[in-house]
Design a protein around this nucleic acid. Sequence first.
DNA 1: GTCTATACGGCGATAGAC
DNA 2: GTCTATCGCCGTATAGAC
Lengths: 211, 211
Amino acid sequence: MPSPRRVGSETSKTRDALLDSAERLMLDRGYAAVTYRNVAASGGVYAGLVSYYFPTLDDLFLALLRRRSERNLDRLVASLDARFDEPLRVVWEFNTDESSAALIMEFLALANHRKSIKAEITEVTRRVRKVQLEAIERHWSRCRMPDEMSPGTLLFLMATVPKMLQLEESVGICEAHTDTIRLVEHYLDDVEPKRPGRNGARRRPSARATA
Amino acid sequence: MPSPRRVGSETSKTRDALLDSAERLMLDRGYAAVTYRNVAASGGVYAGLVSYYFPTLDDLFLALLRRRSERNLDRLVASLDARFDEPLRVVWEFNTDESSAALIMEFLALANHRKSIKAEITEVTRRVRKVQLEAIERHWSRCRMPDEMSPGTLLFLMATVPKMLQLEESVGICEAHTDTIRLVEHYLDDVEPKRPGRNGARRRPSARATA
DNA sequence: GTCTATACGGCGATAGAC
DNA sequence: GTCTATCGCCGTATAGAC
């Protein structure tokens, strides 16, 4: 017989505030600091209330991951759409953005111990990789890569190199980082040149014509 | 006044066996499973004995990391020496080797919460990167890379791409992996061709001439 | 629907007996 | 060198007050 335990509504403002607290804790002190007591304390409530909304810590971590993933995916799709003529630069910048990167690394570490987190990361990574790949394949002819390089491999590099740079910097290693970044940015300037007077977001021609 | 607490000898066989148990636990169930009680149980001893040899968990993790790091560095130096004419392949294979990779990822996650681990990782990474870089710079003229690519960037890629492949595979992502590996291995075959009848370790000419 | 209060076993760590 | 006892904090669960 399943437990008749009550769980708080997903639309509760309290619930959302608790997720905010948990996210800050995870960023500042690592996932190990995300405990019922710590989350409750930083939200000024009792530990029991946290476990009312999230019966297990797994539930809390999953909710956290899903909320952040959806925001990131939305942001990615919006960027790829607005700057449809420079998908490589969008992918590079998206994966360079550090605000979510530290969190992702925490979740990757968590995935080693929590199956539910692992499954969710697999799913969201697949979705993100898919929309990025489609955007790159659409402009593949402009990418000027040698025949041996596939669109998937180029995407793999544009998505994972920023993550490795961040990972190394997080432990104080920065040898060759500026060289690497410069190399990529020169490549981007070459295949996706910035046009003068166009330093903001670009719009699809179908949306509204620029003057 | 510092605690007069007793600590077991570093040459103890029991201590080494406990480190073996801890390493297996960390690989199988993640660093969170490395507890005094778990380590003791898998070694058939009492928890108090584990904290006799390792007063804090930090001490245990540090000892684990140092033991593994020294072994890896020795192995790397030996390979670079024995196969002195193909440093890129050695670096690629060294970073592809998976036996220590899962452990390294665990330690990287640990580094977010334990300063001592972070400092030790920084130090050992610097040392490893240094001997790899010197080996590559010695053969840089043969690497046939465009002018914009620096030896440091090539090393960064040869060292970190295998890690990212493993990290993604650990969460079930494998898109474009075979493409990427094939690309690198074709490059290696090009700049460091395997010679027929020479499929084992190569020796420095000064060591002993081959027949 | 929200929140408070309490209980249980596992944890890191310590002190000291054998 | 080995083992036992103990402390306070933790994740987790549940009962019940508002």
